[in-house]
Design a protein around this nucleic acid. Sequence first.
DNA 1: GAATCGACATAACCTGGGTTATGCGGAGCA
DNA 2: TGCTCCGCATAACCCAGGTTATGTCGATTC
Lengths: 247, 247
Amino acid sequence: MEHRDSCIIRHFSHYLALSERDKVLLNELERTPIEVEAGDLLWEEMANAEEFCSLRSGWAYSFRYLENGTRQILEVFLPGDIIGLREFAFSQRLAGVRMIEDGVICRFPHAAILRLFRQSSTLTTVMFAISSRQQALMTERLVNIARRSARQKLAHFLLEMHQRLRQTEPEGDCHLRLPMSQEVLADLLGLSPVHVSRTFTALDEDRLVHRDGHRLTIPDLQALARHGQFDDCYLIDNLRSLVVSES
Amino acid sequence: MEHRDSCIIRHFSHYLALSERDKVLLNELERTPIEVEAGDLLWEEMANAEEFCSLRSGWAYSFRYLENGTRQILEVFLPGDIIGLREFAFSQRLAGVRMIEDGVICRFPHAAILRLFRQSSTLTTVMFAISSRQQALMTERLVNIARRSARQKLAHFLLEMHQRLRQTEPEGDCHLRLPMSQEVLADLLGLSPVHVSRTFTALDEDRLVHRDGHRLTIPDLQALARHGQFDDCYLIDNLRSLVVSES
DNA sequence: GAATCGACATAACCTGGGTTATGCGGAGCA
DNA sequence: TGCTCCGCATAACCCAGGTTATGTCGATTC
C-alpha cells in the first residue's frame, strides 16, 4: 500500500506520530479522489450535511450570503485541510464551499468519523486538534474584522497566508502566490472591493507589499507584521507536548 | 452516586443518550467545583493552557485585548458550557476568560479529555459536537460583525441570547435577563459603548426592544428577527439523526 | 482588428458609526 | 447629606470606508 504521497497523512503526522494502522484508516477516507475546477461549488448553504471533504490540491473557501446580497467569506482552505467540520453536529450546511482553483478533493461520510472515534484515539485526538486550529483561525479573523483598520486587516491577512503556506512549503521567503481576486479579498475582510484596491496602493506606496497579478512580494516581513499587529501564536499549534506529558 | 443535578450531564444528554458508565466518567470531570465571583479571571491571554473548564452556574465571556487597548469579546458562555476547547491544540491561551456574574466552575486537565477519547466514543462524539456548535456560534458572530448595521448586530445578538436561554429554560417568552453592561455589549459587537446606547434608544423608539436595567423585553420576536436577519438554524444542532443513521 | 469582458485603479461624494464631552440618577459609603 | 463612582443618555463633530461612476489594460472571441 502506497501512501507516502497522501496529503491527509502528512497533515495528521504534523500533530502526532501515526501507527501503520492509523495510516490505513486514514487512507480509507481518501479512497475516491475527485477532480474539481476553479469556481466549482463543493456544496451549497442549507444543503444536507452528510459528508466531510479533504482537500488534496487547490485552494477553496467557505462563504455565507446575507439577505442584502453581500457575501462573507469565512475561511480559506489549503491543500491538506479538512472541510466541513463545522457542520458535524448539524444536519444542514451553515456555509457553502467553493474552489478557488482547480484541485482534487475526497468526500467521506460523517459516519466515517464516528468509526474513526471508535478505532483510533490517536486519530481522534488529531481530528480534535485540527478542529481546534480552525477555530483559532476563525477567532483571529473575527478580531481582525471587528477591530482593525483596512490597512491592518489586509496586512494581517497577507501575513497569515504567508505563514500558513510556509508551514507546508518553506519557499522563497518574501514571495507569495495569492490566487484570489480583490473581490474575494474584500468579502473575506469585510471591506468593499474598491477599498481593497485603495489599500493595496497605499501599502505599495509605503513599500510594505507589492502586488503583480497573483504574485505578491513582502519586502519586509517584520515591518508589515508591526503594521498589521500580526502575532503568529495562533498558528503555532502543538499537540505533542500535551500527549507526551500524559505519559 | 447522585448526579441528577449535574449540569454537564444534562448538556451532554441533549446530544446523545448516555450510559451509566458515561455518566460516571463525566462526573469525574466535575469533581472539584470552585466558587467564583463576578469579574474573576478564569485565565489570562498567553497563560499556559493545560485545562478546560466547565461552567456550572453564572455567565462568562472570552476576550482578547489588542495593542491599541481595545477589547474584543469572542463568546458568551452560559451554564453547562465547556470553556477552553479552542486551545486544545495549543500550549498557550489565545484568549482570556472572565466571569460576568458569580458562579461555580470545575477545572479539569487537557489530559482528561484524552482519557475520555479512549474510554467512550459516545462522549467523544458529543465533545466534538459541542466544539462544532461553538464554532457555529462564532461563525455567526463573525458574519454579524462583518456585514450588518449596528441595529442589526444588536437585534441579532439579543435574539441569539434569547434563543440560547430558551433552549435550557423555556421561560416567559418575551422577557429576558441580560446581566451585561453596554460596554460589554459594545466589545462583543465591535461597536463603541456610545453607539450601543444610541442603538438601544433607536430600537426602543421603534418598539422592537425595551430595556430596563438588566431586564429586557422583546414585544415582537418575529419583527425583531426580520430586523436583525436572524435565522436560528445555526443554533439547532442535532446529532441523533447522524448516529442513528449509522446503525 | 473590432468587440466584449473581467480585473483593477482612481476620483468625488456621502454616511454610519467613532470620538469627545457633558449631564444625570442611583448605589455605596463616610 | 454630601461625595464619589458607575452605568447610561444625548449632542456636536469628524473620518474611515462605502458607493457610484468612469477609465484603462489585457485576454478572448469572431
